[in-house]
Design a protein around this nucleic acid. Structure first.
Lengths: 221, 221
DNA sequence: GAGGCCCTCCCCCCGCGGAGGGAGGGGAAA
DNA sequence: TTTCCCCTCCCTCCGCGGGGGGAGGGCCTC
């Protein structure tokens, strides 16, 4: 009997998955969680053999759950709404066996669950292509690794569309310091100006695209 | 009998919604579509009274479906994975009655369907707050349609990380002209500088994120 | 024809952003 | 300890970007 834990903040999705999986022989859904914190607790309490994990969740997200899973973890299948390049790679690095977009046909999900129970992977062709592309693009990522922690912080703020002055205030720095950081960021990334740097930051997922400008003007209201 | 059409590219979601709605009295799911094109056809063929519509879909997305719906449209409930400010406002403008995040409890969805059949709305508190905030803010982002064709071209180049000089060359313009366009773009979008404008352009999909810098530095490396 | 918007280019003004170089304190590794 | 990097801040210099005007021609609409 394969014991499955479903982790997703969307109740409809949980219901749908449970509905599908419960119809399968040899598969039992032992629990559902709407967020990462409860997922970790449920893993300890229920000892599922397979976990279906959503990436995008309020509070603790899927990546963080993967990071915090102990050594005797269940087999993890990441099931997410959209294909974000870096998240795929990050999830795979953190030990996810399969990474499926939610557009996947339900029988592929079942297949992935059975495979995961045996330690196997099911990769959608699109995801596989993403992985390949990402690996090929590796040099660009390594440039981002060259950034110091502080610089990465500054780049994050930069990718949100903030000016040097705003960044200085939000990090409690002098604006000259920010300028220093920005200059070395531009040099290390090999880009010409802050706009290009912001684009790199967004591409690398330092800031999810849809959150980019939100707090830029949300903070003062 | 309320005839419901479900439009979502995620099979799990469709299954979940159908499962939930089919258990309700007086509600009948008359069809499911995985994309916008088929949704429009299904609306004409099946004449549903309520449509549950996902925003994020391959091919024709939810907003486009809303735009193309004829005058005797079904009541539309937008059901989406995440709360993007502009999309909420845009969807409401285009006639969506309710806008629910997929995190919504299933009974709220049922409630929204029944309300929609009567022409009523069900708004999550979070979404309502978003609408209010957006309206108070003077509507910014959704005003991308306010841009002239030329301005949209410039914004596209901007979102690729190009400087005014580069844009001028690529469009065969004087750089003063580009500056004029950039200024009115900033004004119309209500943003402070070119970086923020670029982010808006990327968010609106004028340029796919992973294509943003490609030709910008691809030419010199 | 008059008014409207769009596209094009021009002007002045100036402040932010980015280059380049210098400097001191601190932490980690040799 | 010495060395090296990181973080912090300071300086000068200047060019690009952006604000605020103005202006002419083209096109469409009233």
């Amino acid at each position: 009997m394969i014991k499955v834990l479903i982790v997703d903040d969307h109740e409809v999705v949980r219901q749908g998955l449970r509905f599908v999986l419960d119809q399968e022989e040899g598969i039992e859904v032992v629990g559902e969680c709407p967020d990462g914190g409860r997922a970790l607790a449920a893993v300890r309490a229920l000892r599922p053999s397979v976990m279906l994990l959503d990436m995008v969740m309020p509070g603790m997200d899927g990546l963080e759950v993967l990071r915090r899973l102990g050594p005797d973890r269940p087999a993890v299948i990441v099931l997410t709404s959209f294909q974000e390049d870096e998240r795929v790679v990050a999830a795979v690095r953190l030990g996810a066996l399969s990474y499926l977009p939610k557009t996947t046909a339900v029988d592929r999900v079942v297949e992935a669950v059975r495979a995961a129970a045996r330690g196997g992977s099911v990769l959608e062709p699109g995801i596989a292509a993403l992985l390949v592309r990402q690996v090929r693009r590796g040099e660009r990522r390594s440039r981002l690794d060259a950034l110091t922690p502080r610089e990465r912080e500054v780049l994050t703020a930069l990718a949100k569309g903030r000016s040097n002055g705003e960044i200085a205030r939000s990090l409690s720095l002098g604006k000259e310091t920010v300028k220093t950081h920005v200059s070395s960021i531009l040099a290390k990334l090999g880009v010409a100006d802050r706009t290009q740097a912001a684009i790199v930051g967004l591409q690398q997922g330092l800031v999810p695209l849809d959150e980019a400008l939100l707090e830029a003007d949300g903070s003062q209201e």
